[in-house]
């Protein structure tokens, strides 16, 4: 009897060991690979994937909270062109009131966040182009990718960064003409932020921010393609004339009118037919209605942000919500 108990014990032990042996094989399950999330080390692997990241820079700039709706509305609301009837805190009441209280629905805080989320996407992409330079110089990338396409992308990124800083400056700083840019401007973030470091950064002056904006736009003017490549929209992606056009606006805001004229002359000849002489042939459209009629891609459009049913600006951000005169749904009211 005793020996058979020993045998049973041995059998049990063997079975147990066998079982435990199979368990350890499952250790790889401890590192599940997500099927829709990309690890950082593969995002510069193919030309197509890099292009997806370029598209993304536009996507972050055009969110409803930023240039996809709210920034335009806030510009008008601040200028006192609107009458406040509903006291609805969700729809720009804070901006209209010029109040800066810390609230869950806060126009002031959210617009700032949206602008800098876009700026960091741009900075992360620019840093990625540099750290992945070796990858971009080898297959599957074409031979001239580093010297042409990558530089074009850099220019697009810097144009969008300039646009973002310019838009934020209009809302969060004194105008340039007040003290010639000596007033406090924005924290000038130019490095990729991906971890918990780098929180401390003093505000640059308005002039310093404008200097960076102009540096970015000058780089963009030099390095953007004259006209977009085949298959790329001239309306929703930047090209050389986009940079020039934006520069006119920047100089206008700075009160540097001679520079405005200088830049504008690059786009609009002094004599008829007033069509841009180089690059995309921008011109005023004979019909103002046609400019806003679908597909909104006339030669008058210098840079537009596309929206689709799948890529909407979000509730109560859309321009039509504010500018279209008819009763409409209001999803929430505090």
């Amino acid at each position: 009897m005793k020996s058979s108990i020993t045998k049973i014990l041995t059998t049990g032990l063997c079975a147990a060991t066998l079982a435990f042996g199979t368990f350890s094989c499952q250790n790889d399950l401890l590192d599940p690979v997500p099927t829709t999330l990309y690890p950082q080390d593969i995002v510069f692997d193919t030309p197509a994937r890099v292009l997806l990241q370029v598209n993304n820079l536009y996507a972050f700039v055009k969110v409803g909270t930023f240039l996809g709706g709210r920034v335009q509305v806030y510009g008008d609301v601040r200028a006192n062109d609107f009458l406040n009837m509903r006291n609805n805190g969700v729809t720009a009441l804070g901006v209209w009131n010029h109040t800066l209280t810390e609230q869950s629905q806060n126009d002031v805080v959210n617009t700032w966040a949206a602008g800098y989320l876009a700026i960091n996407q741009i900075n992360v992409f620019l840093a990625g182009l540099e750290t992945n330079a070796a990858k971009l110089g080898a297959t599957p990338f074409p031979a001239n990718y580093v010297t042409t396409t990558a530089v074009n992308y850099q220019a697009e990124a810097r144009l969008l960064r300039a646009l973002s800083y310019y838009s934020l400056l209009q809302l969060y700083a004194r105008p340039f003409i007040d003290g010639n840019g000596s007033k406090p401007g924005l924290p000038l973030r130019l490095k990729a932020e991906v971890d918990g470091t780098g929180n401390d950064l003093a505000r640059s002056s308005v002039a310093e921010v404008y200097a960076q904006i102009l540096a970015d736009l000058n780089f963009a003017e030099l390095n953007l393609p004259l006209t977009p490549a085949t298959g790329v929209s001239a309306v929703t992606r930047a090209h050389r004339n986009t940079a020039i056009a934006l520069k006119t606006r920047v100089y206008l805001s700075m009160g540097r009118y001679d520079d405005v004229i200088r830049e504008a002359n690059k786009l609009v000849p002094a004599t008829a037919p007033y069509v841009a002489p180089t690059g995309v042939r921008h011109a005023l459209n004979p019909s103002i209605a046609a400019v806003f009629a679908a597909p909104q891609e006339t030669s008058e459009s210098i840079l537009s942000f596309p929206f689709t049913a799948q890529n909407a600006p979000g509730t109560q951000n859309q321009l039509a919500f504010y500018y279209r005169p008819r009763p409409r749904a209001m999803a929430s009211t505090p």
Binding site: L37, Y38, P39, Q40, L52, T308
Partner: peptide, 25 residues
């Protein structure tokens, strides 16, 4: 979150075009 420890990128849209963005540190 199942993937909270990972630095990730995700896809989204820019109009009719797909995008790829830095989504989580």
């Amino acid at each position: 979150d199942d993937f909270a420890s990972l630095l990730t990128y995700e896809n989204n849209l820019y109009g009719d075009n797909a995008t790829l963005y830095f989504s989580n540190p």
